[in-house]
């Protein structure tokens, strides 16, 4: 290993020099930032997508970028509601993919999207337990009584679906925690904190051997639909439309189904 370079002893910078440096930075930073974006000749597409698409969408983008040289796709993954809040706050995005239709409607109502939303994927609920199933859970039934069950809160899409499915199956759930996103449900089960959780089939697929998956009766009657639309005021409207078209194309569908999504 080479010896570290020897620095001469530096005097602490004086206050004036620091202030001067700060002033220089304050004056040059905006120039530097705008310089960056204006130098870029190719288009950068910003896609706001629901957190559950974190793994599938970058794979789809790889194929899209290959088909559209010069276009780079960047993602911001978050809860669908957070993304709508960010769009309403003026966030610069070109495409919005929501995990449910209710949230997409909120975006439509606020005139945040430019195109009519298209459903590109579906998801259904499953029951998961830790691999060794310490609570001896057999399904969405009395085996859950007295066990530590974690579900999504009814205010969020997965929780709303959970409630509907439980009603359909005539089961009253007594969860120990109602989380705001499905990732927390998966986390509670994979850490062994919870005996069981209700998540989307794609989450169970992503968790792999960390969970045991049990199907829930009538889950095909409570289907979660993922809509996608271009964002109003996008500076890359044409590219945004091609991305939406690519997601709904055969190539996009193939990737989505490999991650456990259903295709509408």
């Amino acid at each position: 290993m080479p010896a570290p370079p020897v620095h001469p002893i530096r005097r602490p910078p004086s206050v004036q020099r620091l202030l001067g440096l700060l002033a220089t930075l304050a004056l040059t930073a905006p120039v530097a930032l705008t310089g960056c974006s204006s130098q870029r000749s190719s288009a950068t597409l910003v896609v706001f997508a629901a957190a559950s698409l974190t793994q599938a969408f970058p794979r789809i983008a790889q194929g899209f970028e290959k088909d559209h040289p010069g276009v780079t796709v960047k993602f911001s993954f978050d809860g669908s509601s957070s993304l709508v809040d960010q769009l309403a706050g003026g966030a610069d995005a070109d495409v919005f993919a929501s995990a449910d239709q209710v949230t997409m409607h909120r975006a439509v109502d606020q005139k945040l999207v430019a195109s009519a939303p298209r459903v590109f994927a579906t998801n259904v609920l499953v029951l998961i337990t830790p691999p060794d199933n310490p609570g001896h859970i057999t399904g969405l039934n009395t085996s859950l009584a007295g066990k530590r069950l974690v579900v999504c809160a009814p205010q969020v899409p997965c929780g709303d679906a959970t409630l509907k499915l439980a009603r359909l199956d005539g089961v009253t759930l007594k969860p120990v925690s109602q989380t705001t996103n499905v990732t927390d449900v998966v986390g509670a089960v994979t850490t062994g904190e919870a005996d069981a959780g209700i998540v989307y089939t794609t989450d169970a697929t992503a968790a792999g051997s960390q969970v045991r998956t049990i199907a829930i009766p009538h889950s095909d009657q409570v289907v979660n639909r993922y809509p996608i639309a271009t964002v109003a005021g996008s500076s890359h409207a044409a590219e945004a439309q091609s991305f939406v078209a690519y997601v709904t194309s055969a190539s996009g569908r193939a990737v989505l189904s490999s991650y456990g999504f259903g295709i509408p």
Partner: peptide
């Protein structure tokens, strides 16, 4: 976790509320 009356404190309630109505 987050359960009304047991673990859902005010900040957690605010976070959950935001999901439906900012």
């Amino acid at each position: 976790g987050s359960l009304q009356g047991t673990t859902r404190t005010l900040p957690l309630q605010i976070y959950l509320q935001r999901e439906t109505d900012t």
